[in-house]
């Protein structure tokens, strides 16, 4: 059985030739939650965008393949690629404030995609949306469906977006820091909801985050990213128990602990970063795009 998502040696560059992704390889098995963890600027969001086909115009993919359920995106024409991505994937975005269209009510906004893109009947889409709203524990769906986005709280909007992401039964969901823009109490509920729906629907998730605490709670496997390069990949439990790469160890050590809230925050160790920089420079020197 082929992986739900497979990325092979994916590299991308900016117009000035700077590499933003360095031969990234990873695979997400069906029903698996794969965390993609790293500091800001490490390229984790970029990987998600590349999979979904919404990279900024300035970023160019220079090598590598991406396969969704065994189908190579690079071999499809743009229209077929859009259709495949639209039917099998979905996004839970980072900022629930800008991810809903402010001038359209929630209801039509959620059903529109099912009806127009997937060709469902209006009633079927409507009952599906209500079922999903129930699953994300929205108790007054009537009010929510009639609301404009600005009439809902951030947590409510994120629930709506989670419901929308699962509505069309995608095989893969890219969750791009879905809890970062929310306050801490809401974060926990949202995380639990995503985990719950993921289990119920058996959806694979590529979970992009900078928060190791979130990684520990939700994922089975982790890829640690630094400067667009996967420095370590492991089962989540194993990563925390026996981190192999010095950067992973430094990252875990830098995580603030609740047991000692007054300890000052530790940055990632300088010598580790210097070692990483040397490692990357050496890799870049020998690197030529394999094609393109």
């Amino acid at each position: 059985m082929s992986a739900c998502l497979e990325i092979r040696s994916l590299s991308a560059v900016l117009p000035n030739g700077q590499r933003v992704l360095r031969s990234v390889s990873l695979a997400v098995q069906p029903s698996e939650v794969r965390a993609l963890v790293g500091e800001s600027g490490a390229g984790k969001t970029m990987i998600g965008k590349a999979v979904l086909g919404v990279l900024p115009k300035s970023v160019r993919i220079v090598e590598g393949e991406m396969l969704i359920e065994g189908e190579d995106l690079g071999r499809l024409d743009p229209k077929a690629r859009r259709t495949l991505i639209g039917a099998r994937t979905a996004l839970i975005p980072q900022d629930p404030l800008t991810a809903l269209n402010p001038s359209r009510r929630i209801g039509p906004q959620m059903t529109d995609r099912l009806v127009r893109i997937l060709g469902w009947s209006g009633e079927r889409a409507d009952s599906r949306i209500r079922q999903l709203l129930d699953e994300v524990q929205i108790r007054d769906p009537e009010r929510v469906l009639k609301s404009y986005p600005h009439e809902l709280s951030g947590g409510m909007r994120q629930r709506v977006l989670i419901a929308a992401a699962f509505a069309a039964e995608p095989r893969l969901i890219v969750a791009d820091e879905p809890t970062t823009a929310l306050d801490v109490t809401v974060q926990k509920q949202i995380l639990r909801l995503i985990a719950q729906l993921q289990r119920d629907h058996g959806t694979a998730i590529l979970f992009v985050t900078h928060d190791l605490g979130v990684v520990a709670k939700i994922s089975q496997k982790v890829s640690v990213l630094y400067a667009g390069k996967v420095v370590e990949e492991a089962e989540t439990a194993q990563l925390f128990a026996t981190p192999q790469h010095p950067y992973t160890r430094a990252l875990i050590a830098a995580t603030p602990r609740y047991t000692d809230p007054y300890a000052s925050l530790k940055p990632v160790d300088e010598t580790v970063l210097a070692g990483l920089a040397a490692e990357i420079a050496a890799a870049d020197k020998d690197w030529r795009p394999s094609h393109g």
Binding site: R82, G86, T98
Partner: peptide, 28 residues
């Protein structure tokens, strides 16, 4: 540049459809 335009693209809407359905109502 808004995320909802990106979401519409991921969902598979065409460019002109997004312009008329997602962008136009917000500039009215």
């Amino acid at each position: 540049r808004m995320d909802y335009v990106e979401s519409a693209r991921i969902a598979g809407y065409g460019r002109i459809g997004i312009m008329l359905r997602e962008v136009l109502p917000n500039v009215v």
